[in-house]
Amino acid sequence: MTVDGLIHLGASHFGSALEVQAALADMDAVGTSVAVAAPVHPRGADFTAANKAVAQACAGSGGRLVPLARVDPWDVAAAVAELGRAVAGGARGLFLHPAEEHFRINDDRVRPVVEAAAELGVPVVVAAGFHLYSEPLQLGRAAQWAPGNPFVLTNGGQFNISGMAQFDAELALGNDNVLVQTSGMYREDFLERVVATFGPERLMFASAAPVFTMAYERARVDLAHFGDEERDLILDGNARRVFGVPA
């Protein structure tokens, strides 16, 4: 069994698009049973409508798609309210994209939204690695706002084609509630070091499709050097635990 820890559903303001049937077909092609689905940044920035659309798609997927709620924390009260509404409707976590919504993840104005997720008992997933918005050390600070709640960083917590952000990402992982996803992380040795240093419970497979390619992102995990039990956690167990997906 494999759970993809993040895909993006819908037609994005920024040009990418992945619709439900295509997502399910792509998942079938790479042997993914379940995917955790966040809305894209919707055209018109109506996050409530986008969350409802993803929730509806997930509800009709026979359990193969699990919804996250995406909010824009610039209007904190509205974001907290929308998160509460979405979680009551079945959302299994909060998704934040600091780069696309243009906020700094460790800005104090974001804190109530992260704390609201913890109070609702759902994890926080953050699009990680974006310069100025979600750098690994900024993410580590934000993770400390709700230390008992899982704080999941996409893209290995970083984006740097020279590997120069790996140290910072490891500092972020110094927070016990931080996990990193495998999406886009080109350094196999970093992924293996996360498991060796922090434990296999801290690394989660995710494709981040359609930003990245499902088949290639799955290959990152298949070709890395993990033990069978470690691989089971990375590909399946960790996402099930964090997002409450039944086995």
């Binding site: 590997g163 080109y186 350094r187 196999e188 040795d189 390619t213 088949a215 290639y216 290959a219 990152r220 070709l223 890395a224």
Partner: peptide, 17 residues
């Protein structure tokens, strides 16, 4: 590949995909 710390196996697979 930018190997050996990046995986030549994975990087070659990218060209195949």
């Amino acid at each position: 590949s930018d190997g050996p710390v990046s995986s030549p196996v994975l990087e070659r697979h990218k060209v195949v995909i």
